[in-house]
C-alpha cells in the first residue's frame, strides 16, 4: 500500500460519505444524478463479489463494505426516502444509462484477464466505473447550477482518479510484473472525462464566480 493509493482510497471514501451525509442532513439530493449513483452501486456490487471468498486485508474488506453500504444508501435515499425523493430532478436526469451498461458488459466478455464469472464481472465493473460519472456531468450541464453538493462530489472523485494513476505509476516502478492494462486504460479514460470539469471548476474557483459549464 503506497501513499498515493491510500490517499486515493481516502478521497474516494470522502466523496461518497460526504455526499451521503449531506443528503441525509439537508434531506435533499438536488443536482445529484440518480443514474450515476445507481451505476456506482452496480460497480461496487460487480467488483466486490469476492468480498467473502478472497481476503486481501482487513482494510480492504472494511473499505469494500463501506463503499457498498454508502453507495446503496444514497440510491435508497434518492428512490425511497419520502422527503429526499421529492427533490430528485427526474426530468433532467434522463441519461439512458442502459446504453452504458450493455456495452461495458459486452466489452467485459471480450476483454478480461480470465474468462471466469468473477473476472468478467470485475472487468465489467472497471469499464462501468470509467463512464459512471457521465449522467452526473450531463445533469450538471443541463441544470447549469453547480451547488457545492455536486461540485465537491465530482471534484473529490476526480482527485481520487488522479491519485490512482500516480499509484499505478509508483507500483509500476517498484513492483516487478505489475501490469494491469484493463485498469490502466479504463482509469485514464475515466480521468480524462473529469478533466474538462476540473478545468471549469478551477477557473470558477479562481475567478470566484459561480461555476458555469458551457452549454
Amino acid at each position: 500500500m503506497n501513499l498515493f493509493r491510500l490517499a486515493g482510497d481516502m478521497t474516494h471514501l470522502v466523496s461518497v460519505v460526504v455526499l451521503l451525509l449531506k443528503i441525509h442532513t439537508i434531506k435533499s439530493c438536488a443536482g445529484v444524478s440518480l443514474k450515476t449513483q445507481e451505476l456506482y452501486a452496480l460497480v461496487f456490487a460487480a467488483r466486490y463479489l469476492d468480498l467473502f471468498v478472497h481476503f486481501v486485508s482487513l482494510y480492504n474488506t472494511v473499505m469494500k463494505l463501506v463503499f457498498l453500504a454508502s453507495s446503496f444508501s444514497i440510491v435508497w435515499y434518492m428512490r425511497k426516502h419520502k422527503i429526499v425523493r421529492r427533490t430528485y430532478d427526474r426530468e433532467h436526469d434522463t441519461f439512458r444509462h442502459h446504453f452504458i451498461v450493455l456495452p461495458c458488459l459486452v466489452l467485459a466478455l471480450l476483454i478480461n484477464e480470465r474468462f471466469t464469472f468473477r473476472e468478467v464481472m470485475w472487468a465489467f465493473s472497471i469499464y462501468l466505473e470509467a463512464v459512471a460519472i457521465l449522467p452526473q456531468l450531463v445533469l450538471l450541464q443541463r441544470t447549469r447550477n453547480i451547488d457545492n453538493l455536486t461540485g465537491q462530489y465530482v471534484f473529490f472523485l476526480g482527485a481520487y482518479r488522479v491519485l490512482y494513476i500516480l499509484n499505478w505509476i509508483y507500483r509500476y516502478f517498484t513492483e516487478p510484473h505489475f501490469v494491469h492494462w484493463i485498469s490502466w486504460i479504463a482509469g485514464i479514460v475515466q480521468t480524462v472525462l473529469y478533466a474538462d470539469f476540473f478545468y471549469y471548476y478551477i477557473i470558477s474557483w479562481k475567478n470566484n464566480v459561480k461555476l458555469e459549464l458551457p452549454a
Partner: peptide
C-alpha cells in the same frame, strides 16, 4: 501469491 493473482486494489 493469491494477492498477486487476485485484485488487491479497491
Amino acid at each position: 501469491s493469491s494477492e498477486l493473482s487476485g485484485h488487491d486494489e479497491l
